[in-house]
Nucleic acid binder design. Structure first.
Length: 481
RNA sequence: GUCCCCGUCGUCUAGGGGUCUAGGACACCGGGUUUUCAUCCCGGCAACAGGGGUUCGAAUCCCCUCGGGGAUGCCA
């Protein structure tokens, strides 16, 4: 069994394509099939090497590995369509010789003029279908460069036994008439060469977006004319945005690289994409890759188009972060700490991991670490708006004053983290949230974050004392510790 | 317009003639963990697009309508 992922390098890899890649990868891993990466770069204007490189990078980041491709070679090289033009040319000559294709001298302008009349029901007229040799020569003498059209047979049935959609039947009479297979500049078009490459590369199962389903009869017709093998097909429903139109940038982040930059974990994105349109019998949604592979089944994929739920992906990402091994997570967090203005290189690794162990429960995406790191890494955090309001309130000032008094008298490095709360409670008679909210603001500079009894030992006595003194200055006067 | 695909809570889905007063997850709302937020736990809200058949019985099968999507490119 051989499958393939065939992106067009005309931009970044977006989640729609990435999902197709994921499903191909899953199937390949499940059945021990080879995954071929083929670059479909026949749109010479839009295809770029940078896009191609970024696709490799994004696939690799997701954890998708391929067995053959332009970058690693393989028995069916080359894998870039732009390097296979000689092959396509020989097939075109065969089609021309056998009468399955013919040169068409209509210009783009002429065609557009016809289309302008009734674009809705436009079908190529077949004007150049039966030109004789002298007519062709005359048109060439005018300087016209012909395209090559495929002669679509009349009234032929084409059945696609799709692994996802089931049996789909088309009639050759309504697939839009004779279609162009080679442009006037000699570059062949996707609909034509895709089936040649699939056959030549011995692809047995084509898994692709269902926007290609309507193109499939054209491709099968080409295969028939050329005597090429037709692969099996599995057409994946397209991913939609919240408004039910094809997922695009205006709906939110759609490029895989942006998810990486925004601090999503590849495992989470992969898991989420695998679960779009599919579910395990157990109902589990957060599932290790190996289990997804073990249970994955194309036939169980939903036939309807799923809406990409950014919120659920975020939730899943948070779940992955919480489950992540602390040392590895710490490594992943380093760049985000730097981005937030901290210098994690200056922090003792063991201490850092203790901080991460606590804060990972507060992060849905990696950069969230920046919102809480200051609790431990700032000498005296600048209170956020909520904390500032709390500390400035009468209740807040009472707590600040009480804590201040305690820090200059009975508290020390050994007892402060265990008795501070209790002693402030006793001296102020505050309790519950009225006690904890001001204390939290005082110690951490925020109203949200990990529990105080966990945090204080890690912040340390000196820093806590410094913060208390500082805030006492600010909110209660000028007396110092 | 034509051809093709699809239609269960707001979203992802389970369910494939009786076990469905339709299950799970995200989101949302309450409650608990006698400290907030988060985590975690418990509970709640919330759906078979509509209409006709077939059948003792339909979310499940058939037809129509409606709705959504895709194709209809010298893009892929």
């Amino acid at each position: 069994m051989r499958v393939r992922f065939a992106p067009s390098p005309t931009g970044y890899l977006h989640v729609g394509n990435a999902r197709t890649a994921v499903i191909n990868f899953l199937v390949a891993r499940k059945f021990g099939a080879s995954l071929v990466l083929r670059i479909e770069d026949t749109d010479m204007e839009r295809s770029t090497r940078e896009s191609e490189e970024s696709i490799y990078r994004d696939l690799a980041w997701l954890g998708i590995r391929w067995d053959e491709g332009p970058d690693i070679g393989g028995a069916f090289a080359p894998y870039r369509q732009s390097e296979r033009f000689d092959t396509y040319r020989s097939y075109t000559e065969r089609l021309l010789a056998s009468g399955h294709a013919y040169p068409c001298y209509c210009t783009k302008e002429e065609l557009d003029a016809v289309k302008a009349g009734d674009a809705d029901s436009y079908v190529y007229s077949g004007k150049c279908r039966d030109l004789d040799e002298t007519a062709r020569r005359a048109l060439e003498a005018e300087g016209r460069r012909p395209t090559v059209r495929f002669r679509v047979p009349d009234g032929e049935s084409i059945v696609v036994d799709d692994r996802i959609k089931g049996r789909v039947e088309f009639n050759s009479n309504n697939i839009g008439g004779d279609f162009i297979i080679v442009r006037s500049d000699g570059v062949p078009v996707f609909n034509y060469i895709v089936i040649i490459d699939d056959a030549l590369m011995e692809i047995s199962l084509v898994i692709r977006g269902d926007d290609h389903l309507s193109n499939t009869p054209k491709q099968i017709l080409v295969a028939r004319a050329l005597g090429l093998a037709v692969p099996e097909y599995a057409h994946l429903p397209l991913i939609m945005g919240p408004d039910r139109s094809k997922l695009s940038k205006r709906h939110g982040i759609t490029s895989v690289s942006s998810y990486r930059d925004e601090g999503y974990l590849p495992e989470a994105l992969m898991n989420y994409m695998a679960m779009l349109g599919w579910a395990l019998d157990s109902g589990d949604e957060i599932v290790p890759l190996e289990d997804i592979i073990r249970h994955f089944d194309l036939e169980n994929l939903s036939k309807s188009a799923p809406v990409f739920d950014f919120q659920k992906l975020k939730w899943m990402n948070g779940a992955y972060i919480r489950d992540y091994a602390v040392p590895a997570l710490t490594d992943l967090l380093l760049p985000h700490l730097e981005a937030a203005g901290y210098d994690p290189g200056n922090v003792d690794r063991e201490h850092l991991e203790k901080i991460v162990a606590i804060l990972k429960n507060y992060c849905e995406i990696l950069p969230d670490i920046g919102r809480f790191a200051g609790i431990f890494l700032d000498e005296v955090p600048e209170p956020d708006a909520e904390a500032d309001a709390m500390l400035g309130s009468p209740e807040g000032r009472a707590v600040v004053q009480a804590a201040f008094d305690l820090f200059r008298t009975e508290l020390n490095a050994n007892n402060f983290s265990t008795i501070l709360v209790q002693r402030v409670k006793e001296t102020t008679s505050l309790k519950g949230r009225h006690l904890f909210m001001p204390l939290r603001a005082l110690i951490t500079g925020r109203q949200k974050g990990p529990e105080l009894d966990q945090s204080m030992p890690l912040i340390g006595f000196d820093r806590c004392a410094k913060r208390v003194a500082h805030y006492h200055d600010r909110y209660c006067g000028t007396e110092t510790l």
